[in-house]
Structures are given as structure tokens and as C-alpha cells.
């Protein structure tokens, strides 16, 4: 049981990292990235391929994050003339397009065979302690990212970001370099997605195009929304909530007699979906609300008030 919980806990940390990335680009800067699974895959493939040809694992991870960030910034620049909705579809197209490239460029990615035997860090040396090590490592990365992001978002940069999110024109009039701010936020988000992908690849040691399908994007959006969409702590909470629903439904399903296996599986996914819908209904502002919005509102840079109301305390 312990090793199962460690495993799920590590995956949760990876979900949390993805959620943090989405909080930066969507929650704080208002840019929708429906292709986050694409960036996740990019980081995973980048690190898997680099370490395959002999690069150190740490380098692979950073390279994965950097590549994802670079592509993210490029998208931001490319779509600078478009309305927000269109960034959503371009990123959605990117996610699906990248999956096709992963699937078909067999010389590079191994096609639908995927890449197996991705090197795990220090596994031999640690042996039985390895699951604990990776679990701790993943959560340390989450904590570090959350801490760094909270510093960044509390700074004038963070306030400027929220100003851009709430009204680009006003922010521009107030002298903000809107495009630059947006690219930075989107790039930070993409970097976190890429890093999470690299962490995932070296954790499970196998990746394939089928790993990077839209299901994951949905889970992460739900995690972030459940946690209040602009709150870092909320994102981590949301990831825990989503994973709890995903995994606990597995055990609940075993207690229903008289159903076929297909029915049990359908019922499980149905329950997951309904549970997520209910979370969104009950906690529209997320469990952690929009407290850090206020920083932007109180600042003297002329940013307009966030339109949302703060969550009521529990």
C-alpha cells in the first residue's frame, strides 16, 4: 500500500506542477493554454531523448523546461494580434499537432512504440529508498516552484500581470509592456509544463504519444478551477482533490455487484465527471478564493479591481 501511495503521491506532485503552470498563465495573466499537454509532452520527449544520447538527467530536465518555454513564448508572439479565445484554439491545435508529430516521426520519437527505458536518477544507488526519493524530489520541486512563483506574483511584475489580465488597454495606457508581460507569464507556465513532463518521463521510464492526450488537460483545468484558478495553494489543493477522486473511485467501484466490468468502468468515469462538476458548482471561486487578487487592486498602478468576489471563509 505504501508504495502505491508514494507512486500516486508522486504523480500528484506532477499534476500540481502542471496546475501551478496553469495558474501563472491562465489565473494570473488570463491566457488560456488548452495545449498544456503538448508542452508536457515536449518536456518529456526532450529530456528522454537528450538523456538517451548521454546528457546528464538534470540537464535534460532543464532543457525540457527551456524548450517548452521557448515554444510557449513563440506562440505568444505569433498570436499577439489575436483575441484570447484564439490563443486557446492555437494551443489546442498545438497539443494535438505535437501528438501527431510524436506519432509519425518514428526516426526521432519511436512513433507509437514510444520511448522506453528512460534513465531514472540514482535508482540503483537508492534501491528501496528510490520511491521515497522521487516522491520527496517531486514535492520539493512543487514547493520550490510555489515559493518562487509566490515571490514573483507578489512583486510589481505580478501586479502588472493581473492588470493585463483584467484589462489590457488600461494596462497599456498605464505604461505596461503588455506583450512582454504576457510572453513572460506564458513562458513561465510552459516551462513548468515542460519540467513536469521531464519529471514524469524519468519517473515512469516510458512515454508514448498516447500519454499526452486531452484527458490530462481536462484534469489539470479542473484541478486549477477547483482550487480557485488564480491561487497557487489552490492549484496544489486542486491537484490533490482531482487525484483523490480519480483513484478513490477505483476502490469504490469494487463494491457494486451485478454490473459488468464495462459498466463499472463507465460508472467510474461518470462519477469522476459528476464529482468534478459538483466541485465547480459548490466552490465557484475555489476553496482558496481570490485573496491575492487584492494586491493588484490595492496597488497604485491604476489596475482595475478584479471582478470576482473573494471566497467566503470556510
Amino acid at each position: 500500500m505504501t508504495s502505491y501511495l508514494l507512486f500516486i503521491g508522486t504523480i500528484t506532485a506532477i499534476y500540481a506542477l502542471l496546475s501551478l503552470g496553469l495558474v501563472v498563465s491562465w489565473g494570473q495573466a488570463g491566457m488560456v493554454n488548452l495545449g498544456l499537454v503538448g508542452f508536457f509532452g515536449l518536456g518529456a520527449y526532450c529530456s528522454a531523448l537528450l538523456t538517451y544520447i548521454g546528457a546528464p538527467i538534470g540537464f535534460g530536465w532543464l532543457a525540457g523546461a527551456a524548450l517548452a518555454a521557448a515554444i510557449g513564448v513563440a506562440f505568444c508572439l505569433l498570436t499577439r494580434t489575436l483575441r484570447g479565445d484564439y490563443l486557446a484554439i492555437v494551443t489546442l491545435g498545438f497539443g494535438e499537432g505535437l501528438r501527431l508529430v510524436e506519432l509519425n516521426e518514428r526516426w526521432l520519437t519511436g512513433g507509437s512504440d514510444g520511448i522506453s527505458g528512460i534513465r531514472p536518477p540514482l535508482k540503483e544507488a537508492l534501491s528501496d529508498l528510490y520511491p521515497w526519493f522521487y516522491f520527496t524530489l517531486a514535492w520539493a520541486v512543487v514547493a520550490l516552484a510555489a515559493w518562487a512563483l509566490s515571490r514573483i506574483l507578489a512583486s510589481p511584475f505580478g501586479r502588472a500581470l493581473r492588470a493585463v489580465r483584467d484589462d489590457e488597454k488600461v494596462a497599456a495606457v498605464a505604461g505596461k509592456n503588455v506583450l512582454r508581460l504576457k510572453c513572460q507569464a506564458f513562458g513561465i507556465g510552459a516551462a513548468l509544463f515542460g519540467f513536469a513532463g521531464a519529471l514524469y518521463a524519468h519517473f515512469t521510464s516510458y512515454i508514448s504519444p498516447d500519454n499526452f492526450v486531452i484527458q490530462l488537460t481536462i484534469y489539470i483545468f479542473l484541478a486549477v478551477t477547483a482550487g480557485g484558478y488564480s491561487r497557487l495553494v489552490g492549484a496544489i489543493f486542486g491537484s490533490l482533490a482531482v487525484m483523490t477522486i480519480l483513484e478513490s473511485s477505483r476502490f469504490a467501484a469494487e463494491f457494486i455487484p451485478g454490473l459488468s466490468a464495462v459498466q463499472i468502468a463507465s460508472l467510474r468515469e461518470f462519477t469522476i465527471a459528476v464529482a468534478l462538476i459538483m466541485i465547480m458548482q459548490l466552490r465557484p471561486q475555489g476553496v482558496f478564493g481570490l485573496r491575492n487578487e487584492r494586491a493588484g487592486a490595492n496597488a497604485s498602478d491604476g489596475a482595475p479591481h478584479a471582478t470576482a468576489v473573494p471566497a467566503t471563509p470556510n
Binding site: 502505491y4 507512486f7 500516486i8 515512469t204 508514448s208 498516447d210 500519454n211 492526450v213 477505483r250
Partner: peptide, 12 residues
Amino acid sequence: QSNPEAAVRATR
């Protein structure tokens, strides 16, 4: 779930 990520969790 026709998905390796979900399959890994199930197998674990």
C-alpha cells in the same frame, strides 16, 4: 482507459 498514464496508475 486506453491511456498509458491511467494504465500505469491502475497497474500500481
